[in-house]
Design a protein around this nucleic acid. Structure first.
Lengths: 135, 135
DNA sequence: GATGGTAATGAGACTCAATCCCATCCTTGT
DNA sequence: ACAAGGATGGGATTGAGTCTCATTACCATC
């Protein structure tokens, strides 16, 4: 990830480094606050402003994806370079986020895009339900 | 809409009356703040707390739908009694919300629900793109 | 039409994620 | 090593949404 940013003419910096490394090691999306807490626990949390700056930067360069669950705070997740993306299911019982992908859904959106005759540049899909633990 | 709430054993009240009437007259989703401003312009805005209470109540009774566009504020839209629901496309140019529905998409989600083997109780879909004006 | 139990309302304090500002520090090309 | 400009951090600020609680309005009942 660092290389992509360097290629865009950006300088390195400790805050960016730490946020990126943390995000790269996560199995699932983290909120800015969770990132701040996790980094504070290591002893060196960047300023809040830097965290948000880094996250915006990553989203801009398609290195991370913003996931909004409707609880009033944005979560961020590493975006895999392969380009394939996935969506999330929020468990209404425990709040857990579960990732999934579905070609059928993507196909349906492709067709829909044609039908509407509008250029669609992206889509967010969020399912609500019960995870196996809570069902 | 009033009848449904009355049937649920709720009493009437001026605040509810005004929020419901405003929402029923809207072509598109409004945020709580927009509702407050619009009502204040008429000279009698309910308290903020009442507005949020009424909106929650409407959503609970399926009389309104919460739409989140990712700008950090929820919007609310009258839900038609027929039960059919629609989704939204946000224009990245002007921010306009455009409603659409698509059976293919609903079908894809139904199949997906089967494949995942989880009970899915709802879904939010948001497309991003350019509206005809902005394209 | 008066009464009382209960829901509805409103004002404002409060929470908390996110943004803004700006002085200072650090990276990088030369 | 140096300077220019991007990166950083702390702290103040914003703004949507929540909470509390005293007061008011609704309505079934008498």
């Amino acid at each position: 990830m660092h290389e992509v940013l360097a290629g865009a003419g950006l300088k390195r910096g400790g805050a960016r480094e730490r946020v990126i490394d943390l995000l790269a090691a996560q199995p699932c999306a983290l909120s800015a606050t969770e990132i701040e807490d996790a980094l504070r626990a290591t002893g060196r949390s960047p300023g809040r402003a830097s965290i948000y700056r880094v996250l915006d930067l990553l989203v801009e360069h398609d290195l991370a994806e913003r996931v909004e669950v409707g609880d009033g705070q944005a979560r961020f997740e590493r975006q895999h370079p392969s380009g394939e993306h996935h969506h999330h299911l929020v468990c209404e019982g425990c709040g857990r986020l579960i990732a999934f992908d579905d070609p059928g859904l993507e196909r349906a959106i492709g067709k829909l895009s044609d039908r509407l005759g509008m250029r669609i540049s992206g889509h967010d899909i969020l399912l609500r339900g019960a995870c196996e633990r809570c069902a």
